[in-house]
Lab assay of single mutants.
Amino acid sequence: STVKVRLGHLEVTLHNVSEEDVRELRELWKNGADEEDLRRWLEEWKK
């Protein structure tokens, strides 16, 4: 499914993403990950 995730002022649209992935991303964000960390996660996730 396609999910729009809003993290601060960063809005990311993920395609074919699982609930688990979204949860993981939100956890990262809650734990103080900055945009760099999130971008890195997204790069990994896209592979």
Rank of each mutant, 00 (worst) to 15 (best):
E35I: 12
E35W: 09
E36H: 14
T2A: 05
L14E: 00
S18A: 09
K47S: 11
D34T: 14
N16T: 02
E11T: 13
E20P: 06
L7N: 02
R6H: 10
K4F: 03
K4C: 14
D21S: 12
L14I: 11
E24P: 02
E20T: 10
L10S: 08
N31W: 05
L10I: 14
L42C: 04
R26C: 08
L14D: 00
E24T: 15
G32I: 03
T2W: 10
K47A: 12
K47M: 09
W41P: 00
E20K: 14
S18C: 04
H9A: 14
D34K: 12
T13A: 03
L10W: 15
H9P: 09
V5D: 00
E20Y: 06
H15N: 07
G32Y: 04
E43M: 13
L25K: 00
W45Q: 05
V22T: 04
N16L: 04
E36W: 07
V22G: 02
R23S: 09
H9W: 10
E43H: 12
T2V: 10
V3D: 01
H9I: 11
V22H: 07
N31I: 05
D34A: 11
R6I: 13
R26G: 06
E11H: 11
R23K: 13
L42D: 00
D21C: 08
W41A: 02
V5P: 00
V5I: 15
W29K: 05
E24V: 15
V17E: 00
G8I: 02
G8C: 03
N16W: 06
V5E: 01
L25C: 02
D34Y: 06
E24I: 14
V3K: 02
D37P: 03
E43G: 04
W41Y: 02
E44A: 15
T13H: 08
L14Y: 02
L42W: 12
K47D: 05
L28N: 01
W41V: 02
G8S: 04
D34Q: 10
K4L: 07
N16F: 07
K30I: 10
L14G: 00
K30T: 10
N31Y: 06
R26A: 12
D37Q: 15
T2F: 12
W41D: 00
A33P: 07
L10V: 13
L14T: 00
E24D: 11
S1H: 15
E43S: 09
R39I: 12
V17F: 05
E27A: 09
V12K: 02
E19W: 10
S1D: 05
D37R: 14
W29Y: 14
R40V: 09
K30M: 12
N31G: 10
V12C: 08
R26H: 14
E35V: 12
S18G: 06
H15D: 06
L42I: 15
V22N: 02
V12A: 03
S1G: 08
G32D: 06
V22C: 07
E35P: 07
R26D: 06
A33C: 06
E24C: 08
W45M: 05
V22I: 14
A33D: 03
E36Q: 13
E20R: 12
R6P: 02
A33R: 02
E27I: 07
E35H: 07
E35G: 04
E35N: 05
W45I: 05
E44K: 15
S18V: 03
E19C: 07
E19S: 09
R39A: 09
E11K: 06
E43V: 10
W45N: 04
T13G: 01
E27H: 06
L25E: 00
R39N: 06
W45C: 03
R40G: 04
L28Q: 03
K46E: 09
S18P: 06
V22Y: 14
E19D: 13
L42A: 02
W29V: 13
K4D: 03
L42H: 02
W29H: 04
R40C: 04
H9G: 13
R39P: 01
E11W: 15
E43Y: 12
K47V: 08
D37M: 15
R39M: 13
L7D: 01
K46G: 09
R6Q: 12
L38S: 00
E36V: 10
V17D: 00
K46D: 06
K4R: 14
E35R: 04
E44P: 01
V22E: 09
G8Y: 03
L10D: 10
V3T: 04
H9F: 11
H15M: 08
L38I: 12
H15T: 10
L25W: 03
D21N: 08
H15Q: 07
H9E: 14
W41H: 01
T13L: 08
D21E: 09
E20W: 05
L10P: 00
E44H: 14
L10N: 08
L28A: 02
D21F: 14
E24N: 12
K30C: 05
R39L: 13
L28D: 00
A33I: 07
L42R: 01
R6Y: 11
E19I: 09
E43T: 10
T2R: 07
S1Q: 14
E43F: 11
K30P: 01
W29Q: 11
E11N: 11
L28P: 00
V22P: 00
E24M: 13
S18D: 05
A33E: 04
S18F: 04
V17W: 04
R39F: 11
K4N: 07
D34G: 14
D21L: 11
V17H: 01
L7T: 02
L38M: 07
E19P: 12
L7S: 02
R26L: 11
E44M: 13
H15G: 03
L38V: 08
E24F: 14
W45D: 01
E11I: 13
V22L: 15
R26Y: 15
K4I: 15
E44T: 11
R39C: 04
G8A: 05
L10M: 12
K30Y: 07
L25P: 00
L42V: 15
E27S: 07
E44F: 12
E44Q: 14
E11F: 09
E27L: 11
L14V: 05
V12P: 00
E19L: 09
G32S: 05
E43Q: 12
S18R: 10
R6F: 12
V17L: 10
V5F: 14
R40S: 07
E36L: 11
R23F: 11
E35Y: 12
T13I: 14
L25D: 00
V17P: 06
E36A: 12
D21V: 09
N16Q: 05
G32F: 04
T13K: 03
W29P: 00
T2C: 08
R40W: 05
V3H: 03
L38N: 00
R40H: 08
R40M: 09
G32P: 02
S18L: 06
N31R: 11
R23H: 10
E44R: 15
D34S: 15
A33S: 06
E27M: 10
